[in-house]
Nucleic acid binder design. Sequence first.
DNA 1: GGCTGTGAAGCAGTTCACAGCG
DNA 2: CGCTGTGAACTGCTTCACAGCC
Lengths: 255, 255
Amino acid sequence: MVGDARASRPRRIPEATIVRLPVYQRILAELLRSGVTTVSSEELATRARVNAAKVRKDFSHFGSFGTRGTGYDPALLVSQIDRALGADREWPVVIVGIGNLGRALANSDGFSSHGFCIAGLYDVDPAVVGSRIGDLTVRHLDELAAAAGQQDRPAIGVVATPPSAAQTVADVLVAAGVSSILNFAPRVLNVPADVLVRYVDLSIELQVMSFFLSRRDDESLAEADGAAPIGTGGGPVGVSQRGGPPDRRPDPPPS
Amino acid sequence: MVGDARASRPRRIPEATIVRLPVYQRILAELLRSGVTTVSSEELATRARVNAAKVRKDFSHFGSFGTRGTGYDPALLVSQIDRALGADREWPVVIVGIGNLGRALANSDGFSSHGFCIAGLYDVDPAVVGSRIGDLTVRHLDELAAAAGQQDRPAIGVVATPPSAAQTVADVLVAAGVSSILNFAPRVLNVPADVLVRYVDLSIELQVMSFFLSRRDDESLAEADGAAPIGTGGGPVGVSQRGGPPDRRPDPPPS
DNA sequence: GGCTGTGAAGCAGTTCACAGCG
DNA sequence: CGCTGTGAACTGCTTCACAGCC
């Protein structure tokens, strides 16, 4: 809102905001479906379980779409968020590792919605290669390597293999020209500096929960101290949060 | 390190640190297996793709386990991290929603390792209820509700249902006495303030990647500006990071 | 000399609180 | 008067830089 008034150029949106946009979007889409034509930051904040000021600041990073005294138009917001997220293009995704998880992902509709299409399924197990999932045939990983400098090369690679194969697969993906990798294997990946890796890691999530669970136990045992429990403000379990937003959760690094 | 010298009481470990501990632990376990008896913060940092100072500060939050001039003893670190994470206890986990994802989770060894045990699998689909996975039989969700005030009640609940069922399932989990929920459904959950929810959301991850992908495209188009690309320091793609740590990734809130 | 442990500086993200517009 | 948009304060995390111990 200072220099550049051009609404087109996003100019530095914080990553923390980016991660919340899809959540708002989901909520807005639902409101739209139920015929709502205006929504306040307060209303959205409640549904998203965040602070209303955060909602307003998040939106302010890419424009002023609200009407003072009234609120926001869900339809407008949805389209602006789509644009900010780059959902106007379709990114081809390949999934490597067609076990239970890979299959779950392939069937998930997290892809079909919102500008992604599955461009290929890969594995190395002869028992799996050649089988069909939806209208796609699982191919051998070697064929992915061959897809290298092709015009049809994938933009995003999903690693759903056992950890022991993850680094090798990542190498193949990078060689095939992928520039973002979503890694479900519990392993830090080594990739070139210009490739983005994000991690989804069940066992980290569980261990974080374990931490808060035992923390809580410790606290109930130690019901003696001063006034506040230990946490930041009045939070119940140390850092952790009122039914949701311990907001934030890093992703592991590569090996 | 100020007042209480008692090594037992963790005294406020930042959540950001907690999330990295499992990563270090994994790396340390591997080093141990290969017979390494000492490791520097630098070495660990490289493998974890983080800054060495961060590694040292992370450990410093729960004690001084290193030897100056030498490094850390992996075995000692592993045991200390385990303790900090509360891995000395076994937390019973229930999984609700036995589709592809639920099955993948049930078969995953993210549970068996590190102090978790699957205490129950639940679904509502008659085609699934009664089937066996490993040595567990899938039960009807109603039986979970019945498990309420029991001594054997689960500590952690995993929601692996379609989004439309997620809130209902969360309610049942809370009623059954669960105090942490790991939600794989793309939906913000409403739970009481003392229940911790963490979110794992494929479509958010993809959309974040989409953002960075289009961001990058925009940048290559606009190869004109000043010296630095746009990002914080010298990072290649705005915020995003050298092959890994855009460190951080919030979780959506509940509806 | 090497590497840990840690104050202090720096930075990112959140929250407050209010000015400004409808 | 209500609700957005935003400077400014604040909180938490990261990084630097170095003192201290081996």
